[in-house]
C-alpha cells in the first residue's frame, strides 16, 4: 500500500519540475506566436465595432464599440463601389465560385494528368511529368502579361471562365497525385483488370475512392489558395459585379475615400473578417482529413 502510494508521487515530482523548465518556455514562445497572429484579428474585430468618424479621428480601437451589427450589416448587404451594384454578399459568392472552381478544377485536371503519367505507357511520360513539374518555376506572376493577352484575346475578361481556367494547371497537384498513384499496389490494378474494369472504371471505382483523403487535403490547400488570389482577379475583372472579397475590401474603401467622404473603415474591417471565415471554417472542418491525406494512406 505504502509502496504504491509513494511510487506515483516520486514519479510526479521530477516531472513537475521538468514541466516548469521546458514547457513554460515552449508555451511562452507559442503564446507569443499566437498573440502575434491573433492581435491584428482582435484589433480588426474591435475596430469594426465603431463608427467611421471615430476611427478616422482616433485610429484603431482596442475596445468594443456599439456599431458592430451596423457595420457588418453594411459590409454584407449595402451596395458599394462606383457603380453600387456590388454588395459583400455578391463578393462572397464570387469568392466562393473562384475558390471552389479553382480547387475542383485543379483536382480534376491534376488527377487526370497524374493518371495518364502513372498508368499509361506513354512515350514521354517521364518527360511530360518533368515539364509539368518545371511549371512550378513559372508561377502566374511571371507569365501574367502573356496570360492576360491570351485571355483577353479569347474575350474571356470579366467572366468566371477567364478568372478560373488560366490558374488550373497545377504542378503541385499533379505531383501529389502521381506520388500517391505510384504507391497504389500493382496487384490492385491487375485484380481490377481481371475483374473486367477498364481504364475509366478503374479510375472512377477504385482510384478516386482510394484518393479521397488526398482529394480532401488538396481541396483545402487549393481552396484557400484560390480564395486568396488577388493579382489575377484584379487584372481580369473590371466589372464590379465580378469582384471577389479579397480585392473588394480595398476597392470599397478606396472608392469611398476618393470621394469627399470619410473612408468607412469599420465596414472594411468587418468585410476583412468575413473574408477570413470561409477558409478558416474549411480548414477547421476538414483538418483531420487533411492530416490523413498527407500522411497515411488507406490501402
Amino acid at each position: 500500500m505504502t509502496a504504491t502510494d509513494t511510487a506515483p508521487v516520486s514519479a510526479v515530482t521530477p516531472r513537475r519540475r521538468r514541466l516548469k523548465l521546458e514547457t513554460v518556455l515552449d508555451h511562452a514562445v507559442l503564446i507569443c506566436g499566437a498573440l502575434f497572429m491573433l492581435t491584428p484579428i482582435f484589433l480588426a474585430l474591435t475596430t469594426a465595432s465603431h463608427d467611421k468618424v471615430l476611427i478616422q479621428r482616433e485610429g484603431l480601437q482596442w475596445a468594443f464599440g456599439s456599431e458592430t451589427l451596423t457595420n457588418f450589416n453594411a459590409a454584407m448587404f449595402e451596395p458599394g463601389g462606383f457603380t453600387g451594384d456590388i454588395t459583400g454578399a455578391t463578393m462572397l459568392m464570387n469568392s466562393f465560385i473562384l475558390g471552389v472552381g479553382f480547387a475542383v478544377g485543379k483536382i480534376i485536371l491534376s488527377m487526370m494528368a497524374a493518371y495518364a503519367i502513372v498508368y499509361f505507357r506513354l512515350r514521354f511520360a517521364t518527360l511530360a511529368f518533368w515539364v509539368i513539374f518545371t511549371t512550378l518555376l513559372l508561377p502566374l506572376e511571371v507569365r501574367i502579361v502573356p496570360s492576360y493577352e491570351v485571355i483577353q484575346g479569347m474575350g474571356l475578361t470579366n467572366s468566371y471562365t477567364g478568372l478560373i481556367v488560366p490558374l488550373l494547371a497545377s504542378a503541385t497537384g499533379t505531383f501529389f497525385f502521381r506520388q500517391f498513384f505510384m504507391s497504389v499496389p500493382e496487384e490492385l490494378v491487375e485484380a481490377a483488370r481481371i475483374d473486367g474494369a477498364g481504364p475509366f472504371k478503374f479510375f472512377v471505382d477504385i482510384l478516386v475512392p482510394l484518393s479521397r483523403t488526398m482529394i480532401a487535403a488538396i481541396f483545402i490547400i487549393m481552396f484557400v489558395y484560390g480564395w486568396n488570389q488577388y493579382l489575377w482577379p484584379t487584372l481580369i475583372t473590371t466589372e464590379e459585379s465580378l469582384f471577389t472579397l479579397v480585392r473588394g475590401i480595398r476597392q470599397i474603401v478606396q472608392a469611398i475615400a476618393e470621394g469627399s467622404e470619410i473612408p468607412d473603415y469599420g465596414r472594411a474591417m468587418a468585410l476583412a473578417l468575413i473574408a477570413m471565415i470561409p477558409p478558416v471554417a474549411i480548414v477547421v472542418t476538414f483538418q483531420s482529413w487533411f492530416v490523413k491525406g498527407l500522411t497515411e494512406t488507406d490501402k
Partner: peptide, 8 residues
C-alpha cells in the same frame, strides 16, 4: 499474394 482486395 497480397489478396489485392479493394480497401474502400
Amino acid at each position: 499474394q497480397n489478396y489485392a482486395l479493394y480497401p474502400h
